[in-house]
């Protein structure tokens, strides 16, 4: 069961902006929540079995081979690449502040996206934006 505040918070994240109650509530039930201390690793480069994360609060750094490559903040998501392509994460993601994330186990992501096409579209747009901005990433 989810409290209205939790559902409200979901509604404010771009990824879920097109969903309506009670779909949002179902989403709140599907995702778990984890909180990470500053400096803690969230996603681990090269390790199998990673999850999909959406940042609810705080900042994170994308780190490849020890080099910081990008910053992530509220509403950003990560972990989807290795989950969708079936590989291992190609980067570490590290909490830079106290970091609160929604978490979906990797094996559940595909089914979740198929059940919620608006979320899939939003994700596609975000990934497309990332591609367009790729020069800033590399």
């Amino acid at each position: 069961m989810a409290a209205p505040e939790a559902v409200e918070r979901l509604a404010q994240l771009a990824l879920f902006a097109d969903l309506r109650w009670p779909e949002l509530e179902a989403v709140a039930h599907t995702f778990d929540e984890e909180v990470f201390a500053q400096g803690q690793r969230v996603l681990r480069q090269g390790i199998t079995g990673g999850s999909f994360y959406v940042i609810v609060e705080g900042d994170a750094a994308v780190v490849i081979d020890g080099q910081e490559r990008a910053r992530l903040g509220r509403g950003d998501f990560f972990g989807e690449i290795s989950v969708l392509l079936g590989g291992v994460p190609i980067a570490d993601v590290r909490a830079e502040t106290l970091l609160r994330c929604l978490v979906l186990p990797g094996p559940e992501l595909e089914g979740f996206l198929l059940e919620h096409p608006p979320v899939m579209l939003r994700m596609l747009q975000a990934v497309a934006r990332r591609l367009r901005d790729a020069s800033r990433w590399s």
């Binding site: 909180v35 990470f36 201390a37 803690q40």
Partner: peptide, 20 residues
């Protein structure tokens, strides 16, 4: 003490210490 799941559990480190 930071909590998760709408305040139902404390957020803990790998050694079960409050992260905050």
């Amino acid at each position: 003490v930071a909590t998760v799941r709408e305040g139902r559990l404390p957020a803990l480190s790998a050694f079960w210490e409050s992260v905050t």
